[in-house]
Computed example of a mutant assay.
Amino acid sequence: MKKSLVFRILVTALILALAFTFIACGGTGQEADQPEPDPGPQEPAPEPDPETGEDEPEAPAGDKTYAIIYPVIHQFFDPVTQGAEAYAEQLGDVELIIQAPEGGQVQQQIEIMENLISMKVDGIAIGSTDPEALAPYIDQAIDAGIQVVTFDSDTPNSKRVGYMGTMNYEAGVHMANVIADHLGGEGEIIILQDVATQGNLVERLQGIQDTLEAEYPDIKILDVQSGDADPARSVEVLEAMIEANPDFDSMTGIGGAGGPAAISVWKSRGWTKDDKKIITFDNTDENIAGLRDGIVTALVSQRQHAWGQIIIDSLNTLLEGGTIPEHNDTGTIEVTIDNIDTYQN
């Protein structure tokens, strides 16, 4: 009885051992495959952010990069920037780089050009501070396959494709006629220049000089000086000209700094347009305010508010293999207190 019990226990243990082995081997008698680790729930790959482009370091196909280089930092060019930026945003495939040298420094503008060429931008619009100095760099850009146009100040001795903006010699002729009209065909004037080498200003001055000499011999230019487009320097130079020529009848500013400098001097002396006349270029905020305040007699305004869109349209046309006019004259208009609120209509 005792031996039978022990035997049954041994048989039961053997059966259990065999059953355990069978289960551990997957029920087949072969070695069980090792289970693969559970990787856990999978996150879907993040979509690139269309706003930041952080997952797309390269610009989307079709985007173009254009640079607009002003000859000097001045509020005169604010409407150009505003127009270009608004139009680029409307088109949706144009990136803009907008730069200018401080104080019209030629070397700084050359360095800007060199940098843009190395960046391989698609197009450049430049108002040259010094046409002779910038011409070789415009040619380098063209040779590198970059479309280049000029505006405000042309560089005709370069490979630039075309010029858009004011035809500055004609603007000088217009200014001479405006001066003559307000002086009644006779008087003495002083002229304040900005950057003496800036091509557009040189052409304006030449247009004034030629027209007064040929058509209004009783109007004399007493002095022409440059304030280097610097506001404080322009005031100093103008004060010196006034001290040297106290009997002058009218002052004309050729560039953007001339009008504001004259308004500052007139205010300090307590003058109005009835004492001495200011007949100057450009519809800057200071000049328009001076006109409203009875300090400025007349302005010859350019149409720079249209330049931004014209620049982008021209570069787009060239990039698409089209052609543009060599000269696109946007003209000038006289602004007085009579049309101050309607001249841009």
Results as ranks from 00 to 15, higher is better:
residue 121 V to R: 14
residue 172 G to Q: 08
residue 306 A to L: 10
residue 149 V to C: 11
residue 140 Q to F: 01
residue 257 A to F: 04
residue 211 T to G: 08
residue 16 L to C: 15
residue 288 I to M: 10
residue 84 A to Y: 08
residue 145 G to A: 04
residue 247 D to P: 01
residue 133 A to V: 03
residue 334 E to H: 00
residue 197 T to H: 07
residue 268 S to R: 04
residue 127 G to L: 03
residue 127 G to F: 03
residue 291 L to N: 09
residue 283 N to P: 04
residue 129 T to N: 13
residue 340 I to Q: 12
residue 109 Q to Y: 05
residue 291 L to K: 05
residue 241 M to V: 05
residue 295 I to P: 02
residue 334 E to K: 00
residue 162 G to E: 03
residue 142 I to A: 11
residue 134 L to P: 11
residue 191 I to E: 09
residue 26 G to D: 13
residue 332 T to D: 09
residue 60 P to D: 13
residue 320 E to W: 02
residue 182 H to D: 14
residue 202 V to P: 14
residue 89 E to R: 04
residue 114 E to Q: 11
residue 304 Q to H: 09
residue 329 D to G: 00
residue 71 P to H: 10
residue 152 D to N: 15
residue 278 I to W: 03
residue 73 I to N: 08
residue 291 L to P: 09
residue 101 P to C: 05
residue 235 V to N: 10
residue 257 A to I: 00
residue 90 Q to F: 12
residue 99 Q to K: 10
residue 76 F to P: 02
residue 84 A to K: 03
residue 103 G to H: 12
residue 28 T to V: 04
residue 11 V to P: 06
residue 132 E to A: 07
residue 153 S to E: 07
residue 256 G to C: 00
residue 8 R to N: 14
residue 29 G to W: 10
residue 2 K to G: 11
residue 236 E to A: 08
residue 66 Y to V: 00
residue 270 G to A: 02
residue 5 L to Q: 15
residue 273 K to H: 04
residue 273 K to G: 08
residue 325 P to E: 08
residue 82 Q to D: 10
residue 207 G to I: 00
residue 103 G to Y: 10
residue 328 N to G: 04
residue 182 H to R: 13
residue 273 K to D: 13
residue 238 L to S: 08
residue 248 F to P: 01
residue 320 E to G: 10
residue 345 N to F: 06
residue 269 R to Q: 08
residue 156 P to Y: 14
residue 142 I to T: 11
residue 242 I to N: 00
residue 54 E to R: 03
residue 92 G to C: 07
residue 146 I to P: 13
residue 221 I to N: 05
residue 113 M to W: 03
residue 148 V to Q: 12
residue 134 L to T: 07
residue 18 L to N: 15
residue 122 D to S: 11
residue 292 R to F: 01
residue 27 G to D: 15
residue 300 V to D: 11
residue 342 T to R: 11
residue 141 A to L: 05
residue 169 Y to A: 01
residue 194 D to C: 04
residue 118 S to E: 15
residue 147 Q to D: 14
residue 262 A to E: 06
residue 143 D to E: 14
residue 32 A to Y: 13
residue 212 L to F: 01
residue 85 E to Q: 12
residue 120 K to R: 15
residue 125 A to F: 01
residue 120 K to E: 14
residue 229 A to S: 14
residue 327 H to M: 12
residue 345 N to D: 15
residue 302 Q to M: 03
residue 15 I to Q: 15
residue 306 A to H: 10
residue 13 A to R: 14
residue 102 E to Q: 11
residue 47 E to H: 05
residue 69 I to Y: 12
residue 222 L to P: 06
residue 30 Q to G: 14
residue 311 I to Y: 09
residue 62 G to D: 09
residue 154 D to H: 06
residue 324 I to F: 09
residue 181 D to E: 14
residue 187 G to V: 03
residue 289 A to C: 04
residue 332 T to I: 05
residue 173 V to N: 11
residue 212 L to M: 06
residue 227 G to H: 00
residue 168 N to F: 06
